[in-house]
Design a protein around this nucleic acid. Structure first.
Lengths: 250, 250
DNA sequence: TAGTTTAGTTGACGTAGATCAACTAGCCAG
DNA sequence: CTGGCTAGTTGATCTACGTCAACTAAACTA
């Protein structure tokens, strides 16, 4: 009934898992490499980007404490990053959708600080970091771009701290829905028909809530006519109401 | 009775507020510029670092949405960073002690994402970011150093997310005490005699707790013989117990 | 096609920490 | 020294969310 996913059967040449044999023609480049780079600079970047076989659901891109070698761009599908604390609990640190870049937490100590796993079949671009450093020394725009990417992740993480430490369950979930909706819009997908690639458990973990609370809040939003939910398919009926809830003070 | 602070009366030439007329002789450089730079590279950095008058308590270093120009290193004193959400609540995003660097959240959008205010009289080094970018293009070690700094802040923020979303009040406060103790040790100050530069309100805000809960947990720790507290002076009696509590799963 | 497993929902109840409120101790102004 | 102000402490009560438990429905398998 609700059908949004663009990643179903990797079959023909138009399939996003195989499309985009280079950065210049990749329709995600506007997200992945915003404004920063000139045409000839993109060509240089293109030479260092590696495009592997699609990852199956559940396959890892890297694991916590692996040697840091590369950052990764999601081309299609969806990836979850999570880390394990001393005490053994899992903390989901982020969801990465097409056009988004992950793995930068590994730069600081030459080891990934989190693990990354495909939540569904995903195509990934791998960018060896040594080459980024090289290229950044030569291309000021490239350097600037990665400084920005890192800085933006800091700002997002700090917003997330506010979210989980000062906001109610409803505000947290509304905020996640609004975020995914906006990221869909950025890729020219419907901001109102959303396929959630992650489980309720992952959502709860990410938002600092239990699975039961997530489920209850989904039900409550549905009862209030803000959304329709059917498993992982989500129809947003009143995005403005959700935005209001999301930015409500505590 | 307990006296730890090194920042009392800025008076003579040995006062840390005025000391260190250059990076090479700054006793904090080991924290501020770890390993990365060669001697002659430090000299180049030194030329772009600006050292202003000491900031008085309550004075701002920058404010949220100000144009981003520089990052800052704390030379003495202590600085608090905080941001304001749409809904108007304050979120303390970090405490910065001597040798630590702040302001990097401004790189991403050319505006600071937070405000920074001195919690006590503080001496600050200002490093214009345009110069850092320049120098990073020339000195690979410099570039690498700032990539690392940014990445480490991401990792810390993610740990903080785990702390506030999955840990109890006792675990959060123990974690903060252990962190400040370790940062004291790094500067060759006593890890057990600590002066907390921030108010209970700031601690609570940072940890996602109310001031009352912070107060109660301090009292409980004292009753258990783990610490002695007198206002902002803190004596750690059992650091191992605190470390155990801090890393306890939820 | 029955039987098991896995993901999610819903309800009843318990609890950590928030809220509200009273109180104490410095500390500055006059 | 007195009165008001600010920062912190402590107690009594309330509540949002966690916990525990029962249930439903796909999806997997044998």
């Amino acid at each position: 009934m609700i059908a949004v996913s663009e990643h179903n059967a990797p079959s023909d040449k138009h399939c996003p898992h195989n499309a985009a044999i280079n950065c210049a023609s990749c329709r995600l480049s506007a997200i992945c490499l915003p404004l920063a780079l000139a045409q000839d600079e993109i060509v240089q970047l293109d030479e260092i980007v590696q495009r592997g076989r699609p990852l199956q659901k559940g396959q890892h891109l890297y694991r916590e404490n692996d040697n840091f070698t590369s950052v990764f761009a999601v081309r299609s599908g969806a990836v979850k990053a999570y880390s394990m604390s001393d005490s053994g609990e899992e903390q989901v640190t982020g969801f990465y959708l097409p056009g988004e870049i992950l793995g930068m937490d590994g730069i600081g100590h030459n080891r990934y600080a989190s693990s990354a796993v495909a939540m569904e079949v995903s195509a990934i671009c791998e960018i060896p970091f040594a080459n980024i450093e090289d290229l950044s020394g030569k291309l000021p725009n490239m350097q600037k771009h990665f400084f920005k990417l890192l800085s933006q992740e800091i700002v997002e993480d700090q917003r997330h701290i506010t979210l989980v430490s000062k906001h109610t369950a409803e505000e947290r979930l509304a905020s996640l829905i609004v975020s995914i909706s906006a990221r869909n819009a950025r890729r020219n997908l419907s901001p109102l028909n959303i396929r959630l690639p992650m489980s309720r458990t992952d959502i709860g973990n990410f938002l600092g809530l239990t699975i039961e609370t997530v489920s209850r809040v989904f039900s409550r939003f549905a009862k209030q006519g803000l959304i329709e939910v059917d498993k992982k398919e989500l129809v947003v009926l009143d995005i403005d109401a959700l935005k209001t809830i999301a930015s409500l003070g505590h």
